[in-house]
Design a protein around this nucleic acid. Structure first.
Length: 804
DNA sequence: AGCACGCCGACT
DNA sequence: GTCGGCGTGCTC
């Protein structure tokens, strides 16, 4: 009987986006499992692949089928659930199956491909230029020759068959190992050794004697040295006698810097208890149910999560908690670690590749029961999930912007169906989609209307900056805000100033002609980097030195404009010279951990004012903050995005929630040029539902989600005319295939009209129910792949885009 | 995708 | 004559 494995190979391309059959060699049959990574020959090269099925026959002719070269995992890295989920993701988001599989694993498990040159003859026969390279080893990375401009020589040698070229597959990440000492498990052996040690070797005798009390134990050498005040020479000698041995042991890199104190449950309010009861009830009934936990800021959503997780752990199940990347601050993770201790793994982008790998392995090996992480943690390889939580469910970071373009919320609901467990979507300002679904009883709505400590909500004042201007105040601070800041400074209370600014990166502007330095390849302003006096494009990496004169008009009045935070900082210094200000922006939070350090410093009262952009809007919870100032609420309101009002409302509500969370009452001052806008008016009264009704009305009229679904088709080409022409073709094609109640908008130029020298056009499809949509899009993609791709067109499809 | 094979023009 | 340009086609 033969064993054949279906393998998805690590090549992201349409023609190979299907399983390939490989022979499983006899010696591998008993360890081969679905979900393992394997090394396989594919055409002329070696690639990594995932085993997605095993069978005993094949349609592939025997002369074509090749054997698997190697298994890379003893334990499969993907469960059956994940293999199913990958297929679903592939259909749901239109991506390659390999992309769907890779996104579930830490990048350490991805393959690294290297080309290696192997010597095939005696070194002496080589041309002199190559000889030195092969003196130490017969195998040398091709990279080495590339670096030293020896590619022509290698090419020649290859032709003459003096060397050969091979593609090797390596794993990126390594398991970290440390050397430990294992003490001999047999007393008799130790006694014998002890008796044989010469009387002069006192330290050795002492050490072996001590080992009697630690028979069979594994410990770090350093501990032994300290315990017995001895050295490595002594240990070495004893090991040579056989009393112990060195072993390599796997360890986890520890991303947690400090220990946390254990905390206990807090008492729940009636509202919290009711919510918790409904969730645990669903867990008991083993029902896949989605809850929308709508709780105002400070209403104690996290405590509900924590107690629901505790219940889940009691049942012997596991929990997944997602939080937006930006609020994955120590404040948040510590709350979980202090409640569940070593049972928690944390996954976010701040960790190194190795650290992420280790956190993932803790989950994979069943060492932890709770995962707290950003978007991709939704793929935590638990096999018995009892609850899934998405905190701040409205956040756009839950949608991945590149392939596979999945939404963590959809994956969460898929997994909840698989495991028959509840999902909790928590937010003070739910996305319209989710709230609408809760109204239609698709989700179960749980509401927390009061703050857990019964504090009143902060008072919110909206200041019309046009009036300020009329009164001759041209600064960024209204009189109202200046007065409020002055009072806090006197009372020694803390202030958070929030600069809601789009494109908050620094740029370079000519003050004579108004030119802003632009990228050569993209339709984007260059970002100024103070550290090396360079301007960089954040989309393609293009970089230039800051010019002395304007490239347009040669004027030397060229000046860089900061994040805005620097300018605000200067103004504060003028108005309140005594105030201690902490500025938090891309400049001050570049290095690892600086974000945490700044927050810690602020929490410890080392500054009076915290000044920053988006990143300070979340998770900030310090008792002494009593004033929040929003310097300009308008910028996010005027973005060309149908979610602009929703985002502004969410942001304002979010930042307002930072004030007066504890005993001291809070105040919020919002400065704006459009106080009459409903997003700002309703943020002032801090009521979600009136905003929801109003915004739903707008969406209904404009034909946007949640009334309609969206799909975005993007087409790009090096040549403007080609891009425009084919975008038009795509739109016409879709119009001819899809029914009349679907509206297709465009083609129009994309938000960033040129990226990496490609001109970008897009079409927006709005639809209600269209079972034909995905098949039609697949047909379009087929057309594109068979024909358009040759002409240099690139077409992408984003189902349910968040940004347009 | 990435690599081999294959068929045409410009160089030692 | 050969080197190398990129069109075509395949990968178990």
């Amino acid at each position: 009987m033969i064993t054949v494995a279906e393998v998805i190979v690590d090549v992201a391309a349409y023609p190979v986006d299907r399983p390939f059959d490989y022979l499983v060699p006899a010696e591998m049959t008993n360890i081969m499992e679905c979900g393992s990574r394997v090394k396989v020959p594919f055409g002329p090269r070696n690639v990594l692949g995932f085993v997605v099925a095993l069978k005993n026959d094949t349609d592939v002719p025997l002369e074509k089928i090749k054997p698997i070269t190697q298994i890379l995992d003893i334990e499969p890295v993907l469960t059956g659930e994940m293999l199913q989920l990958a297929k679903w993701l592939k259909n749901e988001t239109i991506c390659y199956e390999i992309d769907a599989l890779q996104v579930m694993l830490p990048s350490a498990l991805r393959a690294k491909y290297e080309k290696v040159i192997t010597l095939q003859t005696d070194v002496e026969h080589l041309p002199s230029s190559l000889k030195e390279w092969f003196e130490k080893s017969e195998r040398v990375y091709l990279k080495q020759f590339e670096k030293n401009n020896l590619l022509p020589d290698i090419k020649k040698a290859l032709k003459e068959k003096m060397v050969s070229l091979e593609n090797v597959v390596q794993q990126k990440g390594k398991v970290k190992e440390v050397r430990k000492v294992r003490i001999c498990p047999e007393r008799e052996t130790l006694t014998e050794i002890f008796n044989n040690i010469s009387k002069r070797a006192k330290k050795q005798k002492l050490l072996v004697e001590w080992m009697f009390n630690h028979v069979g134990e594994i410990m770090e050498p350093d501990i032994i040295y300290k315990e017995l005040n001895t050295s490595s020479q002594v240990l070495q000698a004893v090991i040579e006698l056989g009393a112990a041995s060195f072993i390599q042991q796997e360890v986890y890199r520890d991303p947690f810097t400090k220990d946390v104190k254990k905390t206990d449950f807090l008492n729940l309010t009636d509202e919290q208890s009711t919510a918790l009861y409904k969730i645990t009830d669903a867990m008991n009934r083993k029902q896949p149910e989605t809850f929308l936990l709508h709780g105002i800021t400070g209403s104690g959503k996290t405590e509900v999560y924590l107690q629901a997780i505790a219940k889940c752990l009691e049942e012997g199940k596991e929990a997944i908690v997602l939080v937006p990347e930006i609020s994955l601050t120590p404040q948040m993770t510590e709350r979980f670690r202090s409640r569940f201790g070593e049972l928690v793994a944390v996954m976010h982008s701040g960790l190194s590749v190795g650290e992420k790998y280790d956190e993932w392995r803790k989950v994979h090996q069943g060492k932890v029961k709770v995962v707290v992480g950003a978007r991709s943690a939704i793929f935590a390889p638990f096999e018995n999930v009892g609850i899934i939580i998405l905190d701040e469910e409205h956040e756009s970071t839950y949608k991945q912007e590149d392939s596979p373009r999945y939404h963590a919320r959809d994956v969460a609901i898929w997994r909840s169906n698989y495991h028959s467990c509840p999902v909790i979507l928590g937010s003070a300002t739910p996305s319209l989609e989710s709230f609408a679904r809760s109204k239609k009883k698709v989700y179960t709505l749980l509401t927390l209307k009061e703050r857990a400590l019964k504090q009143s909500l902060p008072t919110v004042q909206v200041v019309d900056m046009r009036d300020e201007l009329k009164q001759g105040n041209r600064s960024m601070f209204s009189q109202q805000l200046v007065e409020s800041i002055r009072i806090r400074l006197e009372r020694k209370e803390q202030i958070v100033l929030f600069l809601n600014r789009r494109g908050y990166s620094a740029f370079v502007l000519c003050r004579d002609c108004g030119t802003v330095l632009q990228c050569e390849n993209c339709d984007i302003s260059l970002t100024y980097h103070r550290s090396n006096e360079k301007c960089k494009c954040h989309y393609c990496g293009y970089e230039i030195h800051v010019p002395k004169t304007c490239p347009q008009c040669q004027s030397d009045h060229i000046r860089f404009f900061g994040t805005g935070t620097q300018k605000v900082e200067e103004e504060i210094a003028k108005l309140f010279p005594e105030a201690r200000v902490l500025r938090m922006d891309v400049d001050t939070t570049k290095t690892k951990g600086s974000h945490e350090q700044l927050l810690q410093a602020f929490g410890d009262g080392e500054a009076d004012i915290l000044l920053g952009t988006q990143m300070i809007a979340k998770g900030l919870d310090y008792p002494n903050i009593t004033l929040v100032g929003v310097l300009s609420a308008d910028t996010s309101l005027h973005l060309p995005d149908f979610r602009a009002a929703e985002k502004t409302f969410q942001l304002l509500t979010q930042v307002s929630g930072r004030a007066g969370r504890h005993s001291k009452p809070g105040e919020v001052v919002i400065q704006t040029y459009t106080p009459e806008h409903y997003a700002i008016e309703l943020a002032k009264s801090q009521e979600y539902e009136p905003f929801y009704e109003r915004e739903m009305h707008m969406r209904h009229q404009a034909g946007y989600p949640p009334y309609y679904y969206l799909a975005l088709i993007q087409i790009s080409h090096h040549d403007v005319m080609m891009a425009a022409e084919y975008a038009g073709k795509a739109a016409d094609w879709l119009r001819s295939k899809l029914s009349f109640n679907i509206s297709i908008i465009g083609p129009t130029t994309a938000g960033i009209s040129r990226l990496q020298n490609r001109y970008r056009y897009q079409c927006l499809i709005k639809y209600k129910i269209e079972p034909n949509l995905i098949p039609t899009l697949l047909q379009l993609i087929k057309l594109y792949r068979s024909d358009w791709i040759k002409k240099g067109i690139i077409l992408t499809v984003d189902l349910d885009p968040t940004m347009i």
